[in-house]
Design a protein around this nucleic acid. Sequence first.
DNA 1: CTGGTCACCTGGAAGC
DNA 2: TGCTTCCAGGTGACCA
Length: 269
Amino acid sequence: MPELPEVEVTRRGIALHLTGRIISGVAVREPRLRWRVNASARDLKGLSVRGVARRGKYLLIDCGAGHLIVHLGMSGSLRVLPRETPPGKHDHFDLQLGDVLLRLRDPRRFGAVLWSTGRVEQHRLLAGLGIEPLERNFDGGRLHTLTRGSRVAIKQLLMDAKRIVGVGNIYANECLFQAGIHPRLQAHRLSLSRCARLASEIKATLRAAIRAGGSSLRDYSGAGGELGCFQMRYSVYDREGLQCRRCGTPIRRVVQGQRSTFFCPACQR
DNA sequence: CTGGTCACCTGGAAGC
DNA sequence: TGCTTCCAGGTGACCA
């Protein structure tokens, strides 16, 4: 699930429930995630959660003396649950906070839970990250600068976190469709005006997805609802062979960098 | 530096 | 039904 909108919705959901609470313990049932989980009760117990920030697809739980860096990988999800909730098969990590706990479920184990002291933005995983697409300073001019001299396909540039964070495979496909740009176009061939169009479609698409997910925020707490029920109605993603919603031409699928790319050959040039 | 490929894991769907 | 194959929303490490 997790691209920037899902991570941002998760951030808001858990911030609501965790901020101000005191960490009472940690449970690591499976430390072998993307990197070995290094968070321990010894470091965390007694600290209070000051807030939850996001950098790209990383969640940064501010505990004062350090940050808990959480990444959801391909299949991770976080929930706030009552303390006694029995863990399921892929529930690898809990942060205990009195009568509730924050639980990470991650079947594929591509996620991460890392304890970081010191300046979190200097952490090796965060230091080299690119621009946040929803920040004010991301615009057509900035995207134009980023694309200069780059011969990679624009879709691959959008997904390169060293340049722009948070845009994964689904939203890269969707944004390029909205902007009428062919995913294989070399980045440096985009004019300033097309960059402006693309930058604004990126913002609009991500914001719409966050809005769609925001409506399910309350599901972060309690045993009931599943999150991730905010599937947007995709224009091209996973629609190979189906008619383009705009012009009726069959959507095509190609592979770029071992990832599926979906596009309308008529609308995107 | 850039650009391209691989590896890490599990589960679900499709194919035979 | 059961086995095999393919595919999946991420990204750091490694190579030429």
